[in-house]
């Protein structure tokens, strides 16, 4: 009898030990190895799958990290989702078997969907984007991000599907674009209200203009997103986009919030179409 080959699987098992594991590089498409030499990395909670060596994981907001947080962490709303790893050794990161990749920023800026960012070096500063649900990294250093399917890089001018957007670098923030031909008139109104008559699911896009790079994932399934980046309603939030209706999920319909991708032909909802 003869087992294999495993169709579509890896050729043969490679056995890794601390010497053969790469340093700050991918082990395979879905696993990333970070080497710590007494240094620190920020990681999103629960993305560490294994490590060699001595390491400690501490939630941010810890008194000991005051100085570190002052320089590299400016998203108090996300504080509960981030930990600081420190120590020495090699650590493997992965996220729900999604593709992971590292990116280097050289005195640059990049905005990314908050659920897609796995880890970053403290030489970068993490700030909350004014677009709800997105985070901006500024500075020089390496970060690791996950995507559902490989990431595709595009250049503006460009219109993208909201669900395929992972992030963007060096260009002004996107704006909404609606396919007005499809939505105007009595019939269009009926269509967007009821979904009857064939809404293509593509009437709403994000539009990018200017110079820069847009990152897209090759799937429209969003990663389950934590309700972060939402801004509270109230006097102190006046003028903050997204404030006032509590949700902060302007780019998603109610189905999107449940993690269900919006399929063509589904019942439309007024709120999303009209951007209320």
């Amino acid at each position: 009898m003869n087992f294999g080959p495993v169709i579509g699987g890896p050729g043969g098992p490679t056995v890794f030990d601390p010497h053969t594991l790469p340093s700050d590089d991918n082990v395979n498409a879905y696993t990333f190895c970070v080497e710590l030499k007494g240094s620190q990395w920020f990681l999103q909670k629960g993305k560490m799958i294994a490590y060699y060596g001595r390491m400690e994981f501490n939630g941010v907001g810890n008194g000991r990290f005051d100085r570190l947080l002052r320089t590299s962490f400016h998203s108090p709303m996300h504080a509960a989702d981030w930990v600081v790893a420190e120590g020495s050794g090699k650590m493997l990161l992965a996220d729900r078997a999604f593709d992971v990749n590292s990116y280097d920023l050289d005195n640059g800026n990049l905005t990314i969907r908050s659920g897609n960012l796995l880890a970053y070096q403290p030489t970068l500063a993490l700030k909350q984007s004014i677009v709800p649900g997105f985070l901006t990294l500024i500075g020089t250093g390496k970060f690791v991000a996950a995507s559902n399917g490989p990431v595709v890089f595009m250049e503006p001018p460009l219109r993208v599907d909201p669900q395929a957007l992972v992030g963007w670098a060096d260009c002004p923030s996107p704006c909404h674009h609606y396919d007005h031909g499809y939505m105007s008139g009595v019939l269009g109104g009926l269509r967007s209200l009821t979904g009857i008559g064939g809404s293509s699911g593509e009437e709403h896009q994000f539009e990018f203009v200017g110079a820069g790079t847009v990152l897209l994932q090759s799937s429209e399934t969003l990663m389950a997103e934590q309700a972060i980046g939402a801004v509270g309603a109230g006097a102190e939030s006046a003028g903050v986009p997204g404030a006032g209706y509590g949700g902060g999920h302007g780019q998603q319909g109610p189905l999107g919030q449940l993690g269900v991708p919006r399929m063509p032909g589904q019942l439309g909802d007024l709120q999303r179409r009209l951007g209320l």
Binding site: F3, G4, V6, G9, P10, P13, T14, V15, F16, D17, P18, V27, N28, Y30, T31, G46, M48, I49, A50, Y51, Y52, M55, L92, A94, R96, A97
Partner: peptide, 27 residues
Amino acid sequence: QAAIMSDGPAVVLRVSAQYPLSVDPGA
């Protein structure tokens, strides 16, 4: 031979006397 299943390709890590390994229970 045995065939085991995983969510995404498994990474095989060697543990030896000088290199103990810590693993997340979920992985």
